[in-house]
Design a protein around this nucleic acid. Structure first.
Lengths: 263, 263
DNA sequence: GCGCTAAGGACGGTTCATCAGACCTTTTAC
DNA sequence: GTAAAAGGTCTGATGAACCGTCCTTAGCGC
């Protein structure tokens, strides 16, 4: 059998052999590192808490919303009821949900919602990575939306921009509409995976965004970018959509870069 | 407490209340569905098999490569050694790895690699979703790379394009270089998350790509797209980079759309 | 008003993935 | 020939997740 001789590499731990392959291999020690990066397997409980919690915090499940009954929800999520209850209990204890018993009862999104918590140290440590992933997801969504979006969906999104215009003075409400806008754009791609990715992205960003001051003028200019973005999408101009979206996101990034220790 | 009255909705299972919110809520039943979609928690074993298997199949760990010793690798991956061994055993049984005992032994990437398997029914069932996610990741990477790529990295990628040119007649080798090119572009963003995302994306695509016939002319034109893409990246033209990448990927998609039942 | 029913709430037992650690076996480098 | 470095094996502990059953609450309909 062909055994690889010891090579000077060993820096990454994997020893890649010599001749023909090396030409193609781009000496990509970096990507090999990502292969051997820690495996973080989330438990069903954790994933459930995160999914529901994100949806609530992003306002996809507005205060007062009644969740499906536990027995129904656990079959939808394909997890055991006890696992689901753990998650619901955690969200109830953090004040995001409350449950009422008896016929006509159920689990409801709390109203009002508890105040948002500041981003965790882990998030702050890798905020650049988060922003990068956001850039990828959102720009990709913009391009695909420009390819596929239907008139009627775009009309709804335009209406959302108008709503935003009326909320320049009320940042929480503005942000809510903003999230809807971005997720709506993901829906316009008619790809459920992208909707999920966008949801996760927005959830990850919301803690960071809450750190930033948002004077009405800034929101106004951001909303102008929304308008230009939607216009580009409407005329199926993928390149322009990508450019507008990238510029839109860069705004947030620059402000964060000023606030946070550059990692 | 404020209980939400029963509403006509109930189609999605979650009943969203009425007044002010509804205006902003875009009536987005679609995204609520994604919130209640099944939770698929991967085990550490599964994730490990997939990570290593993908890296091997994509040629990131070329045949003959020696993996880090088990005791070292399991600490890098932050899993128990027994769990790692399950994964290694699975990959050995499928012919992707082989292990030799004794000092100087180790676990090696098999040479030659076993023939690739046809994509599973599940993959075929959601190939459009996979392509969509690929579009998002790759276009996003292209934009970020156009913002950040350094000269030297681009030089290496240009060299890869030249390598590709020499491999038009040998599709497996071409595909290998192609993968390196795309992952290299992700590395150019200097975002480890994007490298991971790109790796997963390429892994998911490779089964689909193997279904397609790849005459040299097609590869040649694809490589022209590579050239234009890199040129756009080099002159920091984000919009052009997005456009070129989108066009490049669309080629694959159109062929697949002709071959597979449109879902 | 009475009971039915739909909801949340609480156990108990089982299975299985994972962990941690010790130990065995093989082979080569010195 | 011995020590070191590797894979191979085993066992027990732990905890997540599952399944089923039963209890409690409270509105609805007759």
């Amino acid at each position: 059998m062909s055994a690889g001789r010891a090579s000077p590499a060993a820096a990454t731990g994997a020893e890649v052999p010599g001749p023909a392959q090396a030409i193609i291999s781009l000496e990509s020690a970096v990507s090999v590192e990502t292969v051997f990066a820690p495996v973080h397997s989330q438990t069903a409980f954790e994933e459930t808490v995160e999914r529901l919690g994100t949806a609530i915090k992003l306002g996809m499940l507005p205060p007062g919303t009644r969740l499906p009954a536990e027995r129904e929800l656990c079959s939808k999520l394909e997890i055991a009821r006890s696992t689901l209850r753990q998650a619901l209990l955690a969200l109830a204890q953090s004040g995001h949900l409350h449950a009422t018993r008896g016929r006509g009862g159920g689990t409801f999104v709390a109203d009002p919602q508890p105040p948002g918590e500041p981003p965790s140290p882990e998030v702050l440590a890798c905020w650049r990575d988060i922003c990068d992933e956001r850039m990828a997801v959102e720009v990709g969504v913009a391009v695909l939306a420009a390819e596929r979006a239907q008139e009627e969906v775009l009309d709804a999104l335009d209406a959302l921009v108008v709503v935003c215009d009326r909320l320049l003075e009320d940042f929480p409400a503005y942000r809510q509409a903003d999230v809807r806008l971005h997720i709506g754009l993901a829906e316009a791609t008619r790809s459920s995976r992208l909707v999920t990715a966008m949801t996760e992205t927005q959830g990850a960003m919301s803690g960071l965004i809450s750190l930033i001051a948002h004077p009405p003028e800034v929101l106004d200019s951001a909303n102008d970018q929304h308008r230009r973005l939607l216009a580009a999408v409407r005329r199926h101009d993928q390149a322009a959509a990508a450019r507008e979206m990238a510029e839109h996101l860069r705004g947030t990034e620059h402000v964060l870069a000023g606030l946070l220790p550059s990692a």
